[in-house]
């Protein structure tokens, strides 16, 4: 039974994500309910959108009555890092058939991290192993959100300041990006764009226009020397 073996190995490998997704999912579900949503939107969003930071952003984007085009473009650019993941697993997923679409659907930060670092057991089907990892991760995330939203409905305490968890998540992702990229250009763009927009009074549009302007700016940045040599 190599399938059973693949599942057990995936269960073990995904243990760190279990703790991460259950607790951050919990915070997400709790915040969602405290922001005025019914509890069932938490599992619905976890099964459809399935992107942590985007689902947190969804709460405020929907509550602020933003237009659908603005919502779509903001979420697209927020998740643009997933494109990088796609490019780097292109070859690994190329021979896959049965679960390929689901594997691409579920390519979150944590799933990508696991799939690129953990090797499937020797006699196991690598496609089924990757499928188990992805599906287990999505179930942890969904269950965490469900528990958070149900407890949030039951508890009267509003947890003032819990929405800071999203800022904290962004700070962590930012530090990781700084470590990975090792060059200042994108970060200067990302800092200057919203600050200038605020300074000129575009308070409402600072987030959205800031993302668009700095993303376009990234294509205009000079190539670093090492990459120019490889190209």
């Amino acid at each position: 039974m190599s399938r059973k073996k693949a599942f057990t190995a995936a269960l073990k490998a995904s243990a760190p994500v279990f703790f991460g997704y259950i607790s951050i999912g919990f915070a997400y579900g709790f915040l969602l309910v405290k922001s005025g949503f019914q509890w069932y939107w938490a599992p619905i969003m976890s099964l459809t959108i399935f992107a942590g930071a985007a689902q947190f952003m969804a709460i405020s984007l929907i509550n602020q009555n933003k237009g659908f085009i603005e919502i779509g473009l903001a979420i697209f650019l927020l998740n643009a890092r997933h494109m990088v993941y796609g490019f780097s697993v292109l070859e690994r997923y190329a021979p896959f058939k049965k679960f390929k679409k689901y594997l691409i659907f579920g390519l979150t930060d944590e799933t990508y991290a696991l799939i690129t670092t953990v090797e499937p057991p020797e006699d196991a089907d690598p496609e089924f192993f990757d499928f188990c990892i992805t599906a287990l991760n999505q179930s942890y995330w969904t269950v965490g959100g469900l528990i958070g939203s149900l407890l949030g409905t039951a508890i009267a305490w509003n947890a003032p300041g819990l929405d800071f968890a999203l800022t904290a998540l962004f700070v962590v992702l930012l530090i990781e990006q700084i470590k990975t990229l090792k060059r200042p250009g994108p970060f200067i763009l990302g800092f200057a764009a919203p600050v200038l927009l605020y300074a000129f009074g575009f308070t409402e549009e600072a987030l959205f226009l800031g993302i668009v302007i700095s993303s376009v700016g990234c294509f205009l940045l000079k190539k670093p020397k090492a990459e120019a040599a490889n190209a």
Partner: peptide
């Protein structure tokens, strides 16, 4: 490839600053 590698850094900075 270069553009899509750099965009996440810029976007995260915008998100921190504006959140």
């Amino acid at each position: 490839l270069t553009g899509s590698r750099l965009i996440p850094g810029a976007v995260m900075m915008v998100l921190v600053v504006s959140s």
